[in-house]
């Protein structure tokens, strides 16, 4: 399956909290295809972030397997995982995405700089262009609005040309206008730049930007929806709640 960017095979994640065990992921088998924009939805505590972290090599599963492309993440050491994240994975978090002491450009090129590589100039310019960050490049995060900060984070994820980008509620902290703008950029990154994005969200409107929605509940994949509209998503959520 050459067109799979990331996948899990019967992945299970168990947290021991006191005497009780919490199954954050319970036998999850799911695959995310290259060049697509996928969303993960589900109620709070359903294991969305956990799944994302395990796919990204930030966390390890208790049982089952996780693959990034063909690479089995379970066989890698901490250092190998770090190097893998550096070159093949991009991140966008809900907040605190940027290093406050570095300006926008330096933040954007951080993963390539750390790796000791030079960012591809034409690609860099294209990304900046798409995201409309041209006049903000020398600003520090404290001098940028929340929406601009998130756009810088998107640029950082894109510039390293990773195999896949994971975003955990990237528009969660933004007002609806900036949020819509940001989701529009993610959509363009997939359509125009050929990126692969997996995004966790609570918001049916946000999820409607995706090509496909995966629904989680109690650590299990309970449903899926292709080419969703926000109404269809809302319907599905309602039916899942009952």
């Amino acid at each position: 399956m050459p067109d799979i960017a990331a996948s899990t095979e019967r992945a299970t994640k168990i947290y021991m909290s006191g005497p009780a065990e919490v199954r954050a992921l319970d036998d999850v088998t799911v695959a995310f295809h290259k060049g697509r924009f996928s969303a993960i939805m589900g109620p709070s505590g359903s294991g969305k972030s956990t799944l994302l972290h395990c796919l990204a090599g930030l966390d390890s599963v208790t049982g089952g397997k996780v693959y990034l492309g063909e690479q089995d993440l379970g066989t890698l050491s901490d250092r190998e995982l770090t190097l893998l994240r550096r070159s093949r994975v991009g991140f966008i978090f809900q907040a605190f995405n940027l290093i406050p002491t570095l300006n926008a450009t330096e933040n954007i090129t951080l993963p390539t700089d750390i790796a000791g590589r030079r960012p591809d100039r034409t690609w860099f310019n294209r990304v900046i262009d798409v995201l409309g960050l041209g006049d903000r490049l020398t600003h520090r995060p404290s001098e940028l609005s929340g929406g601009q900060q998130q756009r810088v984070a998107v640029a950082r994820a894109l510039v390293a040309r990773p195999d896949i980008i994971f975003a955990d509620e990237p528009s969660g902290n933004l007002d609806s206008k900036s949020g819509a703008q940001l989701l529009g950029f993610l959509r363009r990154a997939v359509d125009d730049l050929g990126q692969t994005i997996v995004m966790v969200t609570h918001d049916p409107v946000a999820a409607a930007y995706a090509d496909r929605v995966v629904f989680l509940a109690d650590g299990r994949v309970v449903d899926e929806l292709e080419s969703p509209t926000s109404d269809a998503i809302l319907d599905r959520i309602k039916s899942l709640e009952t």
């Binding site: 250092r79 995405n97 750390i114």
Partner: peptide, 16 residues
């Protein structure tokens, strides 16, 4: 803490 976490997430090694 958060900043260091971010650095690690985007691929900074422990040694770095």
């Amino acid at each position: 803490t958060r900043e260091i976490g971010l650095l690690r997430a985007v691929g900074t090694t422990r040694r770095q």
